[in-house]
């Protein structure tokens, strides 16, 4: 039996700046050092002894990692230590990134959202995480920081395989950047779970639609999935099916079919792979329709 034990013994440090954090993790391995963001997953990992770090670096005191800012180029910059609750209450998010707001609101309950962070949801590299699919379809890029400097990469490229990220041991996710969505765009995240709330995601589908100027055809469509494969992923082939076309039932069927072909959901005691595929098929179509509806209704409004 694996017990949910009390926390293992560790040393705790509370750096005040990103530089300090980078210094603390330089030259260490993930086995010995653990970054603690909100802690809602990390504490459980330690209690289950999945991770037994020698040292825990608490990030709650690093004020410079906590921000939601609109940049001059129109993009949105979000600090990794921004709590989900803060995202929900940020005017910029509510006004321009409805997909992000909608996704965030579906995660956990108030207690969890008050503590869990956007960075933690990404860096945890869980295939069932809800924010990564939404952020991917919004075109998110992330900034990895280390003593060696910063590097930016698309979130799409962050999860090479199950439970892993491309971040080196001395790097941390510091910032997420979202381009300003086109005016005639809209997105939705459909999270399927057995109850109405507070569940692990069985399948999550994020669809982001950009309409052509005439509002009749898809200029762009992005699709990303939670629990559709060992990692969160974008269904790149499915995304191309409707590009340049109008919304039709046949077109949606074709997209869903392609998305299913690109997916490889696993069978576990939580859900059968076969059922997850059915969900991917159904929710892909539904998400695209909803996103299309949102994009159409926003068409002509000022960005």
């Amino acid at each position: 039996m694996t017990y949910l034990k009390r926390l293992p013994k560790f040393e705790y440090v509370s750096p005040r700046s990103l530089d300090e954090v980078c210094g603390l993790i330089a030259g260490t391995s993930d086995d010995e050092v653990m970054l603690l963001a909100g802690g809602t997953d990390a504490i459980l990992q330690m209690r289950r002894r999945e991770r037994v770090p020698r040292r825990v670096i608490g990030l709650k005191g690093v004020a410079e990692l906590e921000f939601v800012r609109e940049r001059a180029d129109g993009s949105l910059a979000i600090g990794a230590m921004t709590a989900l609750h803060t995202l929900l209450s940020a005017p910029a998010v509510s006004q321009r990134y409805d997909l992000l707001r909608e996704t965030t609101a579906q995660i956990g309950g108030p207690e969890l959202r008050n503590v869990a962070t956007i960075g933690g949801n990404i860096a945890g590299a869980l295939p069932c995480a809800d924010l990564p699919p939404a952020l991917m379809t919004l075109g998110a890029r992330i900034r990895l920081s280390s003593q060696r400097g910063d590097r930016w990469l698309p979130l799409d490229e962050f999860f090479p395989e199950f439970g892993r990220t491309v971040a080196e041991d001395d790097e941390l996710v510091a910032e997420i950047s979202l381009p300003r969505p086109a005016s005639n765009s809209g997105g939705t995240y459909l999270k399927f779970h057995d109850r109405h709330s507070m569940d692990m995601t069985v399948v999550g589908v994020s669809a982001f639609v950009v309409l052509d100027d005439d509002g009749r055809t898809f200029r762009d469509l992005k699709l990303a999935y939670a629990n559709g494969a060992p990692t969160v992923f974008r269904a790149r082939r499915a995304e191309t099916v409707l590009r340049g076309h109008a919304l039709t039932d046949e077109g949606l069927e074709a997209v869903a079919e392609t998305a299913c072909a690109e997916s490889s959901p696993r069978t576990s005691w939580r859900a059968n792979g076969e059922y997850r595929l059915e969900l991917i098929r159904a929710l892909t179509k539904r998400a695209i329709r909803l996103a299309w509806g949102k994009a159409s209704s926003r068409k002509g409004t000022k960005p």
């Binding site: 603690l36 802690g39 504490i43 825990v56 609750h85 207690e111 008050n114 503590v115």
Partner: peptide
């Protein structure tokens, strides 16, 4: 703000 004190150091 409401938090779960079991998940908070």
């Amino acid at each position: 703000k409401a938090v779960n004190s079991c998940l908070y150091l």
